[in-house]
């Protein structure tokens, strides 16, 4: 059981399918790592099923019958697929990546050093306005102090970190409006890897911030 689960209202948005791509990916990774949140989502899916079942519908009419015939005709070309092997869906290079992340890790993607402080892999989620990144922080290292103009979602995938709000380990989820500044520090041990989804550009608040912020806002760093 994780100490920092995603809040219920976010799990609801996820199960209902209303989250934009970035936050949906963050919740998907959290759910993959957190059996308790997985159970909540299973239940919410059952709520969706129950609501679908009680949806009032008109009688199945002639038009519907025509639609059914069209679909039946198409089925000849649609094989019934064998169930996916429960086998390892782990990524060959990034073994820490939970299954829902794997399709996003395209061949050739690799860590890129940013400001000499941490490593980043920027993910491209089509049609989403969030900035979605994997960050890697060596043990004991901190991210530059920053705040956000919008919401920030974080899921820890390896190691852990500590900031003003607590200690976060694998599977833990953090979401916050960005008004508060924070300065996460990676815990001792293996490097901390996390998915970070940011609604709006980050604003650096340290002494170099005013020089670096224009670069951040242009997406260069």
């Amino acid at each position: 059981m994780s100490r920092h689960p995603a809040p219920d209202e976010l799990l609801l948005d996820y199960a209902a399918g209303t989250l934009p791509g970035g936050p949906a990916l963050a919740v998907a990774l959290h759910v993959a790592l957190d059996p308790s949140s997985q159970r909540t989502v299973d239940r919410l899916n059952a709520v969706g099923g129950a609501l679908l079942e009680r949806e009032p519908v008109p009688d199945f009419g002639e038009k519907d019958a025509t639609a059914l015939d069209q679909v039946l005709a198409r089925l000849d070309e649609v094989p019934v697929e064998s169930p996916p092997a429960a086998a390892d869906r782990r990524h060959s290079t990034f073994g820490w990546a939970p299954a829902p992340l794997v399709p996003h890790l395209r061949p050739g993607m690799d860590w890129r050093r940013v400001m000499g402080k941490f490593d980043e892999i920027r993910l491209d989620l089509p049609g989403d306005f969030h900035r979605v990144s994997l960050l890697r922080l060596e043990a004991g290292r901190g991210l530059p102090e920053h705040k956000h103009a919008g919401y920030e979602y974080t899921v820890v995938l390896q190691g852990g970190y500590t900031d003003e709000t607590g200690n976060y380990g694998v599977g833990d989820f953090a979401v916050g409006p960005g008004a508060q500044r924070h300065e996460p520090i990676a815990d001792p041990g293996e490097p901390c890897i996390a998915l970070i989804v940011v609604e709006n550009p980050i604003v650096l608040t340290g002494p170099w911030g005013r020089w670096l912020n224009p670069l951040v806002s242009r997406g260069w760093i």
Binding site: G17, N45, P100, P103, P126
Partner: peptide, 25 residues
Amino acid sequence: IDHLRRNNRPAIDTDDWLTVFAPED
């Protein structure tokens, strides 16, 4: 979700990441 995103760019098939349920619990 796929329908709503189709207006943008082709997305990764949602089946791949929005898991229907945990594959093996």
